[in-house]
Nucleic acid binder design. Structure first.
Length: 701
RNA sequence: GGGCGCGUAGCUCAGUUGGCAGAGCGCUACCAUGACAUGGUAGAGGUCCCGGGUUCGAGCCCCGUCGCGCCCACCA
């Protein structure tokens, strides 16, 4: 029994096994297995924009225990890893790390050296670099980060087949992403449209409904006097955004509101700008809010968009894509004094413009009384710092049921057909799908992402023909329309009348990560793998991204394969700090996983992770890790003691009642834990096994 | 406003067709040489949030209240 250590110790056990697993291909996926004998995991690719934290350690351990279980059951386990390195988080990290910013108008510099590698001083002004240089820096930094990620996950002991590793920016992922998009386009599941969309003025990109969050912000009601055109007096409206006054296109009240019914169809003049706008009725106006009549601007909020569309109001945008008041006064503003007022606002941010216009309104006597401070929810991009504006722009959309009841019902049925663990998470999905108010906006005005793979012809006048995009053959993918030319054109026709231009946008990160099953399984690149694993057995992920990642993956699979992408979804909980608050970097209470591995050992950290029931938010507890370490030591010691009796004669059936009783009890534990693992309840498995182990040590041994 | 989860020992939590209230940590006392002191033995500690109902019997099922948390909607 050379396996019995002389002095039981946990020292070096991790490095020894990491090396052994790697050399022996212990976790290599068996390419000869049939689908029936495969267990496939759609592993979440962590975002490469910083570091892995305890939340990753926690949830990835859960999945690993399930993967190991199925491997023990004889399945060939398809357990890939991926790095989600395309997209905004990486861009932001690259800007902060190297002290640069992307400027597509700058020329490429070979062998460019960034001003800093880590921690630029606070007063450093970002150096503008070309898009290709910026992407090189993205690739350099993500490669560094990914090495650190891989080391950490290996140290944690994940039984991943590292030969299946993918990144979401690599050629194969871009090819998969573009292929899926082109097929959506060919089937009319993707379309382009010029429309008002929510817009982040700092990132200067459109954002999707799924990426919004509300934040409570201080605001103030300003009461403004509009003047009836027939000279019979004023109408007072309350607004929190007086800076949009020049963008006002109508006043709107509820059709049943007797106070304003006499005014419907009549005209009023705006304060300061003296622009004539109609008073109209619409049921979305709330009788009990403010003065009961609202000003509709293009655009202050999503209700304005609805009013503008349904009441066919004119467009008078005054907010530019960088969030400042545009230079050109809107249509209809012709009054000399009004133009003078407008000129003082040009170039100001929304906030500055609000202050300025409030002063002007006070001076003109058209603001009634003092402002009344309120706190109200304002829409933000979840990664953004300033409120979203609404600007009109051309964007790409993928249908998701937000504007189509039949499709929505089909996607609801897909969700209902999934096995959710824990089961109540299914409500998050149906709740979200039922509340969709538009299609999925997938284009982003950014750089480090998968390009929208189309070009547009230019007519004889150089106008872009958006409705007849030129698409590449799938065999050419991946392409970059900003450097590749469409078939039938040459590069020197780019931007010329009668020539072509490339679509300038990239796709949202989710538009690529929604294809992780297809990427990991080499869909269309090697369909023998795809056929072996699809639909996958399980998608493990956080419950906070049901509306994004899970739903988007469902949409793509529904369209492409007429199938759900997996049979099960497991949703992990959050790690809470001991004060029951969600752990966050800003609170400075994040513990690094490596420190804990060093202090307690990977197994002890895994023990803590597995003690939490599926889907339950769990307190971070070093005490549990101490317990785990003691348990591991005890396991070694009892093993040494038992094996010290020498080899058992396996041909002899046990006859002692105490042995038979122990084996009987063990068989019961095996049955129960098998059932628990089949239901993804690793925590029950641990509890039952540990409980048996203590009984085994205390009473049997 | 709509949806979901949670509330059990000081702490973190189990409690699986309703059947003697549990574990770990912490606390108290004792135990020192042959698997294990990273351990062992013993012990204290409970209004199972509250109110009502069903039942022979409720931590568990039903109705309601309160508290905590999350998701969505609400932006004049």
């Amino acid at each position: 029994m050379s396996a019995v250590p002389e002095k039981p110790t946990l020292d070096n056990v991790e490095s020894k096994w990491i090396e052994s697993w790697d050399q022996n291909g212990t976790y290599a996926f068996d390419r000869s297995a049939t689908r029936a004998n495969v267990f496939a995991v759609d592993t979440p690719p962590p975002t490469v924009s910083g570091s892995l934290h305890m939340g990753h350690v926690f949830s990835y351990t859960h999945t690993d225990t399930v993967a190991r279980f199925w491997r023990m059951r004889g399945k060939s386990v398809f357990y890939p890893m991926g790095w989600d390195d395309n997209g905004l988080p990486t861009e932001r990290r690259v800007q902060n790390y190297f002290g640069v910013s992307c400027d597509p108008s700058v020329a490429y510099v070979a062998n460019f050296q960034p001003p800093f590698r880590g921690d630029p001083p606070k007063d450093h002004r970002a150096v503008p670099v070309s898009r290709p240089n910026f992407i090189e820096l993205c690739e350099e930094l993500t490669a560094q980060d990914e090495k650190i990620f891989e080391d950490l996950f290996r140290r944690l002991g994940l039984s991943v087949d590292w030969s299946l590793l993918y990144t979401t920016i690599e050629d194969r992922s871009r090819r998969t992403s573009q292929r899926a998009f082109l097929r959506n386009l060919a089937r009319n599941e993707a379309y382009t449209q010029e429309a008002p969309t929510l817009w982040d003025v700092d990132f200067r990109t459109a954002v999707a409904q799924a990426e919004l969050e509300d934040r409570d912000r201080p605001g103030a009601y300003h009461t403004l006097a509009f003047h009836k055109s027939d000279g019979s007096g004023d109408i007072l409206i309350d607004t929190t955004r007086p800076e949009l006054l020049a963008a006002c296109v109508a006043l709107i009240a509820h059709p049943d509101d007797p106070r304003y019914q006499p005014m419907f169809g009549k005209m009023v003049r705006t304060p300061l700008f003296n622009v004539e706008v109609p008073v109209v009725a619409h049921p979305l106006a709330q009788i009990d809010k403010g003065t009961g009549i609202a000003m509709c601007c293009t655009f202050g909020d999503l209700t304005d968009v609805i009013w503008w569309r349904e009441l066919q109001l004119p467009m008078r945008p005054i907010i530019s894509r960088d969030g400042r008041i545009v230079a050109d006064a809107p249509n209809g503003l012709t009054d000399v004094a009004g133009l003078a007022h407008y000129a003082t606002l040009v170039g100001k941010s929304a906030k500055q413009a609000q202050t300025a216009i409030a002063e002007m309104l006070t001076t003109s006597g058209e603001m009634i009384g003092a402002t009344r401070p309120i706190t109200h929810p304002v829409k933000f991009y979840e990664k953004g710092d300033r409120p979203l504006e609404i600007v009109t722009s051309r964007q790409w959309y993928i249908r998701n049921g937000g504007r189509d009841v039949a499709l929505r019902d089909a996607l609801l049925a897909r969700g209902a057909g999934l096995a959710w663990h824990p089961d109540h998470m299914r409500h998050r999905y149906s709740n979200w799908v039922e509340g969709l108010n538009g299609d999925w906006l997938v284009s982003r005005q950014r750089w480090f992402g998968v390009p929208v793979p189309v070009w547009y012809p230019l007519d004889a006048d150089g106008e872009t023909l958006h409705d007849s995009p030129l698409v590449p053959d799938e065999s050419r993918l991946p392409i970059d329309p900003s450097t590749d030319a469409p078939v039938g054109y040459t590069e020197d026709q780019r931007g010329k009348p009668g020539g072509f231009i490339g679509d300038p946008d990239v796709m949202d990160t989710w538009a690529t990560s929604s294809l992780t099953p297809q990427i990991a399984s080499r869909w269309e690149d090697d369909n023998s793998v795809f056929d072996q694993v699809f639909p996958f057995d399980v998608r493990p992920q956080g419950h906070d991204i049901i509306r994004t990642w899970l739903f988007a993956t469902m949409v793509r699979s529904h369209f492409e394969h007429n199938s759900a992408p997996w049979a099960n979804a497991t949703l992990s909980g959050w790690i809470l700090d001991p004060d029951r608050k969600k752990m966050s970097k800003s609170k400075g209470n994040v513990v690094t996983p490596l420190d804990l591995f060093d202090q307690y050992g990977s197994d002890a950290v895994r023990y803590w992770a597995v003690s939490a029931r599926p889907g339950v938010d769990t307190a971070f507890s070093e005490d549990q890790m101490k317990v785990g370490r003691k348990l591991a030591t005890k396991l070694l010691n009892v093993t040494k003691f038992v094996l010290g009796f020498g080899d058992a004669d396996e041909s002899v059936a046990p006859t002692e009642p105490i042995d038979i009783a122990m084996l009987h009890r063990l068989a019961g534990v095996v049955d129960e834990t098998t059932a628990a693992f089949e239901a993804f309840d690793y925590a029950r498995v641990l509890e039952r096994t540990e409980s048996f182990f203590w009984w085994f040590c205390d009473d049997y041994v």
